[in-house]
Design a protein around this nucleic acid. Structure first.
Lengths: 204, 204
DNA sequence: CGTCCCGTATGACATCTGTCATCCGGTACT
DNA sequence: AGTACCGGATGACAGATGTCATACGGGACG
């Protein structure tokens, strides 16, 4: 009756990627037909191998798994999308869902959930950790504007105001204004804390 | 003629841990006899299962894989130690070796190297990525004193001088002095950069 | 014994950062 | 037409941060 499920695996750490492939290889009905290590190779590989499900890590070079998910969702809407991540950040979940993901798993969930999630999304179900879903809903939307996010991202490595101003083509005063409003919105006391909190929430 | 190799797997993310177990399970001569998710459970599990090799992730709750390695090395010197990490930080390699590790692998190395490394350490060999080894030697030793490290670690989350002083039972001026010297030793321009650089080098 | 480094501390100083009020031009919604 | 919000900017001010000189007691090492 049903053929095996063709899976694309996107994860930058080869040891983890191949280990996950070995894990999925143990399942009778699942076959990993393609592996990529970069976000920007996902779409082409998914198309070339006519996969049923794409399993995407978020943190990858090239582009994030969320961006890759959005592209696949647009170009190959038939492909089911499972997003897998180290960090259970509510903002990630929200963005993954907006990008068209069908399942969202964190890497410290039991391994059995992986194959299970793949089967469920193919059956049309959505798979989301209920705790995370609650957290994502509870915390509300990202209060930062696009510019504030940019400045905060750029400030994350310890750049000074002068460097930020130069890099973003803004005046130093404007940089300080954005950081100041971001600091207030996040209810913290300096840029370093703002970066940390925004990161933790997946807003960065 | 030799029995199977008994391996202990220590890694906090269960999906990754079980995937690695699946990967090693494919090898005829290797058997994963124990899995733990915390650094502070390594020693007891290694002893209880009389393992030949312990495969240790560095980033774990309880204690780091490096600390766990040091304990096992002291208590069960017969057990070979393979340290596995996401981050190829030269300082990590150095500390792992000082803790008695026999092999040091990064997670973005090919999966085949894992089983290979396990066999090699049992044969008495040491397994280290040559590029990393060179980097570790090239960058020299950690220039920070113990106190400077502590202050930098505490400052990493965005705490202010006043909070650091209170937390570490120091005067504010002393905190500033330590941060200032750390900033100079790392040749950067503020605490945020100092934290970033020290992290990247594995000195934190 | 002298020298060096570490941990700790102070005070003074310059610079950086964060806040606030205020302004302008554009867009979007009512 | 009015209001609200965003991106962008300025100037003034207070407080935080980074630098430097200097000091003292304790190990370590020659």
């Amino acid at each position: 009756m049903s053929r095996t499920i063709k899976v694309l695996l996107a994860e930058d750490q080869s040891m983890v990627r191949e280990a996950l492939a070995a894990l999925l290889g143990l399942e009778e009905d699942i076959e990993v037909v393609a592996q990529v290590a970069r976000g920007d190779e996902v779409l082409a590989a998914a198309r070339a191998h006519d996969v049923d499900v794409a399993l995407l890590d978020i943190e990858m070079p090239g582009c994030t798994g969320i961006e890759a998910a959005a592209r696949v969702h647009r170009e190959l809407p038939r492909v089911k999308l499972v997003v897998l991540t180290t960090f259970g950040r509510p903002g990630y979940l929200r963005r993954a869902m907006e990008a068209g993901a069908d399942a969202f798993l964190v890497k410290d969930a039991p391994a059995a959930q992986l194959a299970e999630a793949i089967r469920k999304v193919l059956a049309g179900e959505r798979v989301i950790d209920p705790t995370l879903a609650a957290a994502a809903l509870a915390e509300g939307a990202n209060p930062l504007t696009e510019r504030e996010r940019e400045v905060l991202r750029a400030a994350a490595d310890g750049s000074t105001n002068a460097e930020l101003a130069a890099a973003l083509h803004l005046s130093q005063g404007t940089v300080r204004n954005y950081l100041s409003t971001a600091i207030q919105k996040l209810a913290v006391r300096n840029r370093a804390e703002a970066v940390r909190v925004a990161r933790e929430k997946g807003w960065l």
